[in-house]
Design a protein around this nucleic acid. Structure first.
Lengths: 145, 145
DNA sequence: AATAAAACGGATAATATTATCCGAATTTAA
DNA sequence: TTAAATTCGGATAATATTATCCGTTTTATT
């Protein structure tokens, strides 16, 4: 897998929370993990990390749950979720795992791999949560199965 | 990491073996793991897998070791090493981990992710071992550090 | 003030990946 | 034919990732 399971769940959870927030609703752990098909307790850990990274917001107590501000929904990009959970290494790391792979000391796939890695970074850095949650709202995309 | 550590070692080992084979030499586990900077015993397991996948050949006994045929060096592509070690899932799988992500039931990043995933597949499917081992021979690329 | 619903945080467990160890089988050479 | 060098294969260990459990804290409602 390109991203860790934690990261996959994190992105799916964020998109669901965003969709609900756009609808003016707050949503809780139970609903989230049910809707995205993820284990509840594990998802809770990931949501905590997203809160600490200021990607989502949480409210404790009855009628509490998770939400996103309109600003966050519009401005936060996919890349930020990946960086918050998996770290940004994926977008920099050598394809063959070399520590010091660079222009001056490249691995054999450096040039070709860089193109793909940059394409991934560019794609994720230009895709907002809003853009993706809109697809959910239109039911032209899904978060489960 | 995009690929597992096993896969990274596997690609690096294959390229080193190819380089040596082009030079008309056979090389052994010790030299390989030293030259690519990988743990010996773990590398042995990976080499065995590559032998069973007909990517490299092995010879037992003194003066034994691993080698590649000229044909294999020219015809085998990077993608085959990845498939032998990590399986081909990376090139098919949904970016958000959905089991049934497809054109008719897409995840929100399906279209955009597919482009990048296909670029990776295309790149690896069109890059031969020969092309990469040549860079090693020219010392314009490295397998360690 | 008491109760209940929710997120939070720490500890632990289960599983997958990475790594090591060691004896067996094979082959070459003395 | 014995010894040594090598790959092979099975068992085990170490580490990272994924997952669960349970008590604590916060907050809204009664």
């Amino acid at each position: 897998m390109i991203f860790s399971k934690a990261c996959e769940y994190g992105i799916r959870a964020t998109l669901y929370i965003a969709q609900k927030s756009v609808q003016g609703e707050r949503t809780g752990l139970k609903a989230i993990s049910k809707e995205i098909g993820s284990p509840e307790a594990f998802t809770a850990k990931i949501l905590q990390k997203l809160v600490r990274s200021n990607i989502i917001e949480s409210t404790k107590g009855p009628y509490g749950g998770f939400q996103m501000s309109r600003k966050a929904i519009e401005e936060i990009k996919l890349v930020q979720i990946v960086e918050a959970i998996d770290g940004g290494d994926i977008f920099i790391q050598c394809g063959l795992g070399l520590k010091e792979c660079s222009e001056t000391h490249p691995c054999p796939v450096h040039d070709k791999f860089k193109v793909v890695r940059n394409a991934l970074h560019e794609m994720m850095n230009s895709t907002s949560i809003f853009e993706l949650s809109t697809k959910l709202e239109e039911k032209s995309a899904y978060l489960k199965r």
